[in-house]
Nucleic acid binder design. Structure first.
Length: 265
DNA sequence: CTCAGTGTTCAGTG
DNA sequence: TCACTGAACACTGA
């Protein structure tokens, strides 16, 4: 379930596991879809023997900064993650690669539904697809004036705009819905028609929700009880918020959208 | 057996 | 050309 908070936690997890260490061995599985533009063999060769100097993230993309280029980049898709362990018996199902660091730490990336991507890039930040992303929602959220200007340039439903990675990198389906719920703005409203005050609320909630989710290590159990998140799943007709308001499901921007008409206008 | 799905891309439309 | 929309992608789990 990777949106920005899960991906940022994956970044921290990878740094904790690998920072300053050398990669001794790389095991891979054959997957010409997830390994995109690179063979598993070339991927392994690029990582073997290298030292991990940092783990970077922008939006939902991750990369390892190594002591030699090219660098690997990772996107989880709908089902990816990093798993860290020491015993090879714990290698996860659907793994695409497994790194063994010199101290015995192992890191694997499983990807059951194969919508994730693994690539090699000389300079990830400045090459597609990462170069085409908008501002990072955690690290580079624009100030209120700039944010409002960016929103007013767009005519699509605000929900679709929030999920557009060339606008706000890292926002996915549930974060977009949560932001609009807490900001009191209906998801189908056109971005360029929003009031300045509504845009200001959207920006504030966007920042707060992403920060909170990262602060609790993307552990859903620890998300505040008042969040729509806990009650949005499954399209049962009698779903209500923690305050008893009816939750409605519609499709916007091609995604299932949960919203509360009595609160969002 | 059917279908939804926390993501991205690309063809088609206006 | 731009902005936007909807289908396709792959495959698990409910």
């Amino acid at each position: 379930m990777p949106e920005l908070p899960e991906v940022e936690c994956g970044r921290r997890q990878a740094e904790r596991a690998l920072l300053g260490k050398h990669i001794e061995r790389v095991a891979t599985t054959a997957d010409a879809i997830v390994f995109d533009g690179v063979t598993p063999r070339r991927f392994a060769a690029a990582l073997r023997g290298r030292r991990v100097e940092a783990v970077g993230r922008r939006g939902k993309h991750l990369w390892f900064a190594l002591d030699r280029r090219p660098w690997p980049t990772f996107h989880y898709g709908m089902t990816g993650s990093f798993q860290v362990y020491r015993d090879v018996a714990e290698r996860p199902r659907f793994w695409k690669f497994e790194l063994l660091a010199t101290d015995g730490t192992r890191l694997a990336m499983p990807n059951a539904r194969r919508l994730g991507r693994i690539r090699l890039r000389e300079d990830p930040r400045h090459e597609p697809p990462i170069s085409g992303l908008g501002f990072d929602t955690l690290d580079d959220l624009p100030g209120p004036a700039k944010f409002a200007e960016l929103v007013r340039r767009r005519k699509a439903p605000i929900k679709a705009v929030l999920m557009d990675q060339s606008f706000a990198a890292g926002v996915g389906n549930w974060i977009a819905d949560e932001v609009l719920f807490q900001a009191g703005v209906a998801p189908q409203r056109r971005a360029h028609e929003l009031e300045p005050e509504e845009i200001r609320r959207i920006r504030t909630r966007l920042s707060a929700i992403v920060r909170k989710a990262v602060a609790v290590d993307a552990d859903k159990e620890q998300f505040p009880k008042s969040w729509l998140f806990h009650r949005r799943w499954g399209k049962n007709a009698d779903a209500v918020t923690s305050r008893g308001d009816r939750i409605t499901h519609v499709t916007i921007g091609g995604r299932t959208t949960a919203w509360v008409p009595t609160i969002q206008h």
